[in-house]
């Protein structure tokens, strides 16, 4: 089969491009450590979240030095807790599940973005910096009221976090 010299060159350049793209994603995973939402969390019973230790009371709690866990339930058409309040300059892991249909969880203007599937828990770890209010939206169609499904993520000072969290949950 005859392949033109230019075509061979083009083919080589194409394969190089493909390898570079795969390489860049691999670097993103290994270097800056961008982990994918995956199967690390065990499935939950979406119809019995009331009895679930983490999701019966959606909340933010401290789980380590400067590390916080946010347990969030998405539903038609909102998020609990609302707003989600986290302290500045900390590492926050969102654990998000749904009690009805498939939803999305997107902190607008950031790369904190995941699908929310009933029966599964999405975990997403982010670094938050100075105090700021972020919009939180559902970005997967979830029913006729989809467009009103929004929440807030408030990054607040350490003092305000303790005050707003009522001192009860902070461990």
């Amino acid at each position: 089969m005859h392949i033109h010299a230019y075509e061979k060159l083009w083919l080589a350049a194409s394969i190089l491009l493909i390898l570079l793209l795969i390489g860049s994603v691999t670097y993103g995973a290994v270097g800056p450590g961008v982990a994918m939402v995956a199967d690390s969390e065990q499935p939950v019973d979406a119809q019995a979240l009331d009895e679930d230790e983490r999701f019966s009371e959606p909340r933010v709690e401290q789980v380590g030095e400067n590390e916080y866990a946010a347990y969030i339930v998405a539903y038609q058409f909102g998020f609990e807790p609302s707003p989600i309040v986290v302290p500045e300059n900390s590492t926050v892991t969102f654990y998000v599940t749904s009690r009805d249909v498939i939803h999305g969880f997107e902190v607008v203007g950031t790369n904190a973005n995941t699908m929310v599937v009933p029966g599964e828990v999405s975990d997403l770890t982010v670094e938050v910096e100075e105090p700021q209010e972020y919009g939180l939206i559902c970005n997967e169609y979830c029913g006729a009221g989809h467009h009103v499904m929004e929440g807030k993520v408030h990054v607040v000072s350490q003092a305000e976090f303790e005050e707003r969290n009522g001192g009860g949950d902070g461990a």
């Binding site: 795969i22 939402v37 199967d39 699908m115």
Partner: peptide, 24 residues
């Protein structure tokens, strides 16, 4: 389904590699 919970990262990576070769 890169952002789906309940699917291991390895499967996502394999799918991505195949996808990139589909550019060819």
């Amino acid at each position: 389904q890169y952002l789906d919970p309940g699917i291991a990262e390895g499967f996502k990576f394999i799918s991505m590699t195949n996808t990139m070769f589909l550019l060819l």
